[in-house]
Amino acid sequence: MQTQNALPETPDQTRKRTIEVLAHASLGRLKQFFADLDEQPEFQMMRGPETGLVMIRGRMGGTGSVFNLGEATATRATVRLTTGEIGHGYRLGGDRDAVRLSAVIDALGTRDAFKPKVSRFVEETEATIKSREDKQRAETAATRVNFFTMVRGDD
């Protein structure tokens, strides 16, 4: 996921961030969004939810020419709300419920009445994900080696 930059986001950037945060959110977290709604949105499935493969690519030496590393399972869904908005959900793994809910949230995010709610949800979820990652970084940092140089020789 890309970190936020200081400039105001374009609609595509907002959308990208929404879809990425939803892809990283837990199913429980996504369900919470709907539990907090007064009225459940109605929608139609346009594609999926379906599970398939994404071939993950790497670079030789980390920076060189591209090669195929191996595949990962991925699941995707596309919905259309009865009000017409389209939403997409994607994530690694095989969780069909999660991508369906993600797609609905993405679609709601393009509808003016829901925009603030979705953007708040995305921000909170992003913060949760970030704090989980920060914790991991801090745990790794505690295993950093501090070398002590032993002074040898006579004086």
């Binding site: 346009m46 594609r47 379906e50 596309t78 259309r80 389209i86």
Partner: peptide
């Protein structure tokens, strides 16, 4: 981005 028209007309039950 994808136009709305492109979303319709898929298989309803792909299998």
């Amino acid at each position: 981005a994808l136009a709305n028209a492109s979303l319709d007309g898929g298989f309803q039950d792909a299998v």
